[in-house]
Simulated scan of single mutants.
Amino acid sequence: MTTDSLLARDLMTTGVVTVPPGMPVASLAGLLAERGISAVPVTDAEGRLLGIVTEADLVHRLAGKAERAVSWLRRLLGNAESQAEDYARTHGMEARDIMTTSVITAGPDATAEECAQLMERHGIKRLPVLSEGRLAGIVSRADLLVGVLEPPERVGTPEHSRDARIRQALRAEMREQPWAQSLYVFADVKDGVVTLHGYAKSEEMRRGLRVLASRVEGVERVEDKLEVVSVPLPGEVI
């Protein structure tokens, strides 16, 4: 693999959670909260992408319900089609009603640079990757960082895949532990070695994080570079 050959197929996340168009909005909100994700693609039974529901779509729906009734002047001068679409998105009960349908996508052979340009140009955080019209994966901004941080020849190797699995499992386990303060702890993983960076509230928490990381399957060693802080961190409930 050359230094210029990082493609969407190399960077994308393939184990993507998808939902059908008839999924209830309440279930969608629960799914995003439970999985700790900010968006979910909507596909048909054949895997074709129909749209995407983001946290912003759900917030728009919630905010739209609080708006006052449309004035007679706005009804007279406004575009009926756009008003009808906005009504459906703020009052819809299923994914098909509130999803964003004008989704920017890329193909598997799009370069990392092309994916970054699309995200920058359209102000989006994720880029669905379509292969023969079907959803093959998603490239996120975090995935693009791999193109910056990882040597291209290492992407796609068994070692890289193992590190990615460790990183994902570690994040999931930290979210399950309320004491872990995952917002302030960053785990770097390379060749099975986990390096913990960030802040811990106490030596006990620091020790707990070391043990937590060491228990993840595939971890060979844990290097602790955490700093213990005694003052409340931003966003911490006092």
Score class of each variant (00 low, 15 high):
Ser71Ala: 07
Trp72Pro: 08
Arg74Thr: 08
Arg75Ser: 06
Leu76Phe: 06
Leu76Ala: 15
Gly78Glu: 04
Ala80Asp: 14
Glu81Thr: 02
Gln83Lys: 13
Gln83Cys: 04
Ala84Val: 00
Ala84Asn: 09
Asp86Asn: 09
Tyr87Leu: 14
Arg89Asn: 11
Met93Asp: 11
Glu94Trp: 00
Ala95Ser: 13
Ile98Gln: 02
Ile98Met: 05
Met99Cys: 14
Met99Gly: 13
Thr100Trp: 00
Thr101Glu: 13
Val103Gln: 02
Thr105Pro: 02
Thr105His: 01
Ala106Asn: 06
Gly107Ile: 11
Thr111Ile: 03
Ala112Gln: 05
Glu113Gly: 11
Arg126Pro: 05
Leu127Phe: 01
Leu127Thr: 01
Pro128His: 00
Glu132Thr: 05
Glu132Ala: 11
Leu135Gln: 09
Ala136Met: 12
Ala136Cys: 07
Gly137Lys: 01
Ile138Ala: 05
Ile138Ser: 01
Ile138Val: 11
Ala142Ile: 06
Ala142His: 08
Leu145Asp: 08
Val148Arg: 07
Glu150Arg: 12
Glu153Pro: 08
Glu153Gly: 08
Arg154Ile: 02
Arg154Leu: 09
Val155Pro: 06
Gly156Leu: 09
Thr157Ile: 13
Glu159Leu: 10
Glu159Cys: 02
His160Pro: 03
His160Tyr: 15
Arg162Pro: 02
Arg165Pro: 01
Arg165Trp: 02
Ile166Lys: 00
Gln168Cys: 07
Gln168Val: 02
Gln168Glu: 06
Arg171Lys: 09
Ala172Lys: 10
Ala172Leu: 11
Ala172Cys: 09
Glu173Val: 08
Met174Thr: 05
Glu176Ile: 04
Gln177Asn: 14
Gln177Cys: 10
Pro178Cys: 12
Trp179Asp: 06
Ala180Met: 08
Ala180Pro: 01
Gln181Thr: 14
Ser182Tyr: 06
Leu183Lys: 14
Tyr184Ser: 06
Val185Ile: 13
Ala187Phe: 01
Asp188Glu: 10
Gly192Val: 10
Gly192Ser: 04
Val194Pro: 07
His197Asp: 15
Tyr199Trp: 15
Ala200Ile: 09
Ser202Asp: 04
Ser202Thr: 15
Glu204Gln: 15
Met205Ile: 15
Met205Asp: 09
Arg206Ala: 12
Arg207Glu: 13
Arg207Asn: 12
Leu209Ile: 04
Val211Leu: 13
Leu212Pro: 10
Ala213Thr: 09
Ala213Arg: 03
